[in-house]
């Protein structure tokens, strides 16, 4: 990937992020922040590559910590986002139904 192509990717991705968020209702701000928190968990693949190429003890130690943190970011981000969005679904489904208590 040449530098200028990378710059184009950067620019287009930045606009994409802006567009995706710009018309979001307030009620979804927290789940969406959580969801985007999950998405940058992709740092896991970078941490894997960094650890995979580590040679010295120092590099391996930092790489190990990096993979551990990144896995936490990805998994934790997924779990809390999913839990939040699950409630949105159920409250919508219950809306028209009868409440028994």
């Amino acid at each position: 990937m040449t530098g200028i192509v990378a710059l184009y990717i950067f620019m287009l991705a930045a606009f994409t992020g802006y567009e995706v968020i710009s018309r979001v209702p307030v009620i979804l701000h927290t789940p969406l922040m959580s969801g985007s928190n999950f998405v940058h968990g992709i740092v896991l693949v970078g941490a894997m590559v960094a650890l995979g190429g580590a040679h010295t003890g120092l590099e391996k130690t930092i790489g190990f910590i990096g993979v551990l943190l990144a896995a936490g970011n990805a998994v934790g981000g997924y779990v809390v986002t999913e839990r939040m969005l699950e409630m949105f679904k159920s409250s919508g489904a219950r809306r028209g139904g009868n409440r028994t208590h």
């Binding site: 992020g17 922040m33 998405v39 992709i42």
Partner: peptide
């Protein structure tokens, strides 16, 4: 990583 990170960066 570039795309996901940048999308989150601008959306955030």
């Amino acid at each position: 990583m570039i795309i996901a990170g940048t999308v989150v960066g601008s959306a955030g």
